[in-house]
Design a binder for these strands. Structure first.
Lengths: 108, 108
DNA sequence: ATTATATATTGCAATATTACGATTAATATT
DNA sequence: AATATTAATCGTAATATTGCAATATATAAT
């Protein structure tokens, strides 16, 4: 029914899932890659770069911000977006944790 | 509109997004963690472990398998699931790539 | 062969996501 | 003050996801 029983999962599991969910769209991957590719941070020319409307980009940026993957600073009439690195070690740890078990034992 | 213009993104971007999307649900995170927590691989007692119906678990397992995150081997009447480690270095590389840019420069 | 067990698949219904156009809010420029 | 620019928000339509019940399939045990 499209409902997820959030109370039955640990906070960590829910947090991981929500961050990965934010990464689970090509537009948001592309936005992250674009922001990270510039040495300085970028404002609204992400709109010019991607084949999406300004409204759609804005929504994706909002989702990335909510997930804690980017920060946005208002500078005059434009907004400067940058990578927020705080969540990535968390993701990294999860990936490593899963990966390690793989190398030890698996199906015979 | 729920449509994603797949032709406008690179294959790599699409691949990353689809793997992250598969990770973007707490049930699937929990399934991965459960499989990896066991030293040997596990069959259908994932159903006993999580508060979801057998059908729902089956769907999630299918999605994880499609994303290349797990493998399933039939052994008699049960299926043995294991982590498929091939995709994780790919994810790891992406995360590192984004993270690096963060440390160099960001909003003043 | 029949029954039991384990997993997969299918067909819904409820909910969420995605994207767009239009509008709004806020700051800059003239 | 009037206009332009930038970004967020709202409303709407199309599509996808999620989860359950029911069913199907396949192997094991009796």
């Amino acid at each position: 029914m499209g409902i997820t029983k959030t109370e039955t999962y640990t906070d960590q599991t829910l947090a991981l899932a929500s961050i990965f969910k934010a990464l689970g769209h090509p537009a948001r991957i592309a936005i992250l890659q674009y922001i990270s590719a510039q040495s300085a941070c970028i404002c609204g020319d992400i709109v010019a770069e991607l084949p999406l409307s300004q409204a759609s980009i804005s929504r994706h940026l909002q989702e990335l911000k909510t997930a804690g993957l980017i920060k946005g600073e208002i500078s005059g009439t434009s907004v400067c977006y940058c990578i927020n690195g705080t969540q990535f070690p968390f993701l990294d740890a999860f990936i490593k944790q899963i990966q390690v078990s793989n190398t030890t034992t698996c199906c015979p």
